[in-house]
Design a protein around this nucleic acid. Structure first.
Length: 572
RNA sequence: UGGGGCGUCGUCCAACGGAAGGACACCGGGCUUUGAAUCCGGUAAUGAUGGUUCGAUUCCAUCCGCCCCAGCCA
C-alpha cells in the first residue's frame, strides 16, 4: 500500500514520533496526551496547521486527548483578540479540544509556589543584576559565564526578596528570579536562566494581580506536567531548551512537589513547516500587514488559516497537505505546488462547475435569430452525478474568453481563429467568419455562425472540433469581479535577498490582479460567500466573504486548473 | 574555535544489516464536449573518504556542509 492509499483510507503516515510513542507504550506508559500551545499574539498560519494536525492527530490515533493551551506568559505582547481567532481557526480545521482548554496563566499561583520550593532547596535565587549585566556575565558560546554576585544569598533573603518582587516593591527590570544551575554549562539555557521578571503590565486574564511573570522555560514544562501531557511536541529551535525543560521537571520531582501527574512529560522536537514563495514568521507576516503590502491577516494571499480560508482552501485539503508533507527533523522547504495539488484534488471532487468569462470578448452569431434562445440542461459536476444539473441559456450575443481567440495562432493553438471552428461547451459548434476591429486595430467583436446541426455541442455530421470553449450569453449573464492571485514572493525562498536589502526585495508586485468586468452565468449570481465553484477551464473560485455587496459578487481565485497550453507556451 | 541537531530523486517523506520506494514537480502517451479530471509509462537520489560485514542509506571512524543556542521573547 502506498502513502496515497494510506491517506485515502485515513491512516496517517507514520513518523519518528509514532516510534517514540510506541516504545513508551511498550515500556508501560498508558494514555497519550498532547497539546497545542499557541501564544495569543498573532493569527494561526499553515505552519501551525502542521502542528495542530500532528498533535490532535496523534491524540486521536492513540485514543488519547489533545489540549488547547494558550501560552500567555508575556502580557506585553499578547492580546485577547487573538484567542477567539485561534479557536475559530482550529475548529474550522476540524479539531476539537472539548473541555480541555487551558491557559498557562491558570498556573501562575502554582508556579509561584514551586518557585519558592526551588528557592528553599537552594536551586533558585533573586538576582539584582540589570539586563545588560546578566547578558555580559552569561559568557559566550565558547567562554563560560561568571556567577552573579547575588548567587549565594541566603534562602531566607531570597524568599523575602522574591515575596517583595511579587508585591511590587521593586521597579520593572530591577530584579529577576534565576534558577541556580551552572554558569559554565555548554548549554546556554542552563547558565542560571531567568524564571521571573518584573513587568508591570496588565494581563488579559489575570489583570493586575501580578507584576512578576514567569518565562517560557519556567512555565511550559510545568504546565505540561500539571496537565498530564505525555508528549510535548515542539519545533527544532527548542532542542537546546530540552535540557532546561528536563532540569526543572526532575528537580521539582526530586523535591516532591504535587502536580496533576506522576509521569514526567517528554519534549520531542520536529521541523517546522516552510513553504516556498511565502513566509511563516509572525514578525514578517505582521510586517506585511502593517506596511500595507496586504489587506490584513485574512488577505487571500496570506498563508494564515484565515487567509487560506478566504482564498477558498478547504480544511480537508489543508489536512491532506499536512499529512503528505510528513513529520521529520530535517529543515525543509515544501513546494507550494503540493498545497495547490491538494486544493485541486479536493475541489475537483466537490466544487460544482459554472461558466464565467473573466476577460470577455463579444461574439455575434449572425445566423442566429435575435429573439431566439436555447435552453440546455447541463451537469454540475461530470464526476459526480449527485451534484445534479442546471440550465444554461444561449442567445445570439455571447461572450468568450479573450485568450481563446487568436488572429494569428501559433501552431500549438487550437482554439478559435479566423475561419476556424470550435465547440461552445454544451451549446453549439461555431465558425469564426470575421474579427471586427476598432480604429486602433483592437479586436472588439467576432462575427460567427452556428452550425445548426450541432445543438448541445453534438455533431450530427460527425464533425470533429479540436477545442471546446466556455461562454456565457451576453443577455443572460451578470457582471462580477474576480481576483487572481500569484505568490507574494518571487523567489522560492523569500529570505534569499542580497546584503543590505530586506525581505521586501523579493516581493511580487504583481500578486493580485483585479478583474472588474467579468461575466458569470445567471445561475452563479445567487452564490453565497464562502462557496467554491470551478469556473470551467479556468480554476477554482471562492465567493469572497468580505467584499461582496448585493448584486456585486467578488470571487477569489483559489488555484488555477492545470494548464497544458500555458506549459506548452512557456516552453517556446 | 563550545554545545545541541540535521544531511536520501528538483521538492517532501519512507526504507531500522538483505533488490533504495511513494507523493508532488517534470517529461512522453491513451481518453476527453473543461488543453481540467482520469488512465498508462518514463527521467531522477543515499554529502565525502575509509573501516566492519557474505552484504551498509542503515553500524563505526574521520572529514565536509547546513540549522539552532549568548532575550528579563516564545
Amino acid at each position: 500500500m502506498n502513502s496515497d492509499e494510506l491517506i485515502l483510507k485515513n491512516e496517517p503516515k507514520r513518523n519518528f514520533i509514532h516510534e517514540i510513542i510506541d516504545r513508551d507504550k511498550e515500556a508501560g506508559a498508558s494514555a497519550v496526551v498532547t497539546r497545542f500551545p499557541p501564544e495569543p499574539n498573532g493569527y494561526l498560519h499553515i505552519g501551525h496547521a502542521k502542528s495542530i494536525c500532528l498533535n490532535f492527530g496523534l491524540a486521536k490515533e492513540y485514543s488519547g486527548r489533545c489540549h488547547l493551551r494558550f501560552d500567555d506568559t508575556n502580557p506585553s505582547k499578547e492580546n485577547t483578540k487573538y484567542i477567539e481567532s485561534i479557536k475559530e481557526d482550529i475548529k474550522w480545521l476540524g479539531f476539537d479540544w472539548s473541555e480541555h482548554l487551558y491557559f498557562a496563566s491558570n498556573y501562575f499561583d502554582k508556579l509561584y509556589e514551586w518557585a519558592k520550593a526551588l528557592i528553599r532547596a537552594g536551586k533558585a535565587y533573586v538576582c539584582d543584576l540589570p539586563p545588560e549585566e546578566v547578558s555580559k556575565t552569561r559568557g559566550t558560546l565558547t567562554e563560560p559565564g561568571t556567577e552573579s554576585p547575588y548567587r549565594n544569598r541566603s534562602i531566607d533573603e531570597n524568599l523575602d526578596l522574591f515575596e517583595r518582587m511579587k508585591s511590587g516593591e521593586f521597579p520593572d527590570g530591577s530584579k529577576t528570579l534565576r534558577a541556580k544551575i551552572d554558569m559554565k554549562s555548554s548549554f546556554m539555557v542552563l547558565r542560571d536562566p531567568v524564571m521571573y521578571r518584573i513587568l508591570r503590565v496588565t494581563h488579559h486574564r489575570t489583570g493586575d494581580k501580578w507584576c512578576i511573570y514567569p518565562t517560557y522555560d519556567w512555565t511550559h514544562g510545568q504546565s505540561d506536567w500539571n496537565e498530564g501531557i505525555t508528549h510535548s511536541i515542539c519545533t527544532l529551535e527548542f532542542e537546546n531548551n530540552r535540557a532546561l525543560y528536563d532540569w526543572f521537571l526532575r528537580t521539582l520531582e526530586s523535591l516532591g512537589v504535587e502536580t496533576g501527574s506522576k509521569r514526567l512529560p517528554k519534549q520531542i522536537e520536529f521541523a517546522r513547516l516552510n513553504l516556498t514563495h511565502t513566509v511563516m514568521s509572525k514578525r514578517w507576516l505582521l510586517e506585511l500587514v502593517e506596511r500595507g503590502v496586504v489587506d490584513g491577516w485574512d488577505d487571500p494571499r496570506m498563508p494564515t488559516l484565515a487567509g487560506l480560508r478566504r482564498r477558498g482552501f478547504t480544511p480537508e485539503s489543508i489536512r491532506d497537505f499536512c499529512e503528505r508533507i510528513g513529520v521529520a527533523k530535517t529543515n525543509s522547504i515544501v513546494e507550494l505546488a503540493l498545497l495547490e495539488h491538494c486544493a485541486r484534488q479536493d475541489l475537483n471532487r466537490r466544487a460544482e462547475r459554472r461558466m464565467a468569462v473573466l476577460k470577455p470578448l463579444k461574439i455575434t452569431l449572425t445566423n442566429y435569430p435575435e429573439d431566439k434562445i436555447d435552453k440546455f440542461e447541463v451537469k454540475n459536476n461530470p464526476d459526480d452525478e449527485s451534484a445534479g444539473t442546471r440550465n444554461l441559456i444561449f442567445s445570439r450575443e455571447i461572450f468568450i474568453e479573450e485568450d481563446d481567440f487568436r488572429e494569428n495562432p501559433p501552431k500549438h493553438f487550437f482554439r478559435l481563429m479566423p475561419g476556424g471552428e470550435v465547440r461552445l461547451k454544451d451549446a453549439y459548434i461555431i465558425k469564426c467568419n470575421e474579427a471586427v476591429k476598432d480604429s486602433s486595430g483592437k479586436i472588439v467583436e467576432l462575427l460567427c455562425t452556428v452550425d445548426p446541426d450541432s445543438r448541445g455541442g453534438q455533431s450530427a455530421s460527425g464533425k470533429k472540433v479540436k477545442s471546446t470553449l466556455h461562454w456565457v450569453s451576453a443577455k443572460y449573464s451578470e457582471s462580477a469581479e474576480a481576483r487572481l492571485y500569484n505568490p507574494l514572493f518571487l523567489t522560492p525562498n523569500p529570505y534569499d535577498f542580497p546584503k543590505g536589502q530586506d525581505l521586501l526585495f523579493n516581493l511580487n508586485s504583481d500578486s493580485m490582479e483585479i478583474l472588474k468586468d467579468c461575466r458569470i452565468e445567471k445561475e452563479l449570481a445567487s452564490a453565497k460567500p464562502g462557496e467554491s465553484y470551478q469556473f470551467m477551464r479556468l480554476g477554482y473560485f471562492c465567493v469572497d466573504s468580505r467584499n461582496c455587496v448585493p448584486g456585486h459578487l467578488v470571487f477569489n481565485q483559489t488555484v488555477t486548473l492545470k494548464d497544458d497550453l500555458a506549459r506548452v507556451e512557456k516552453k517556446k
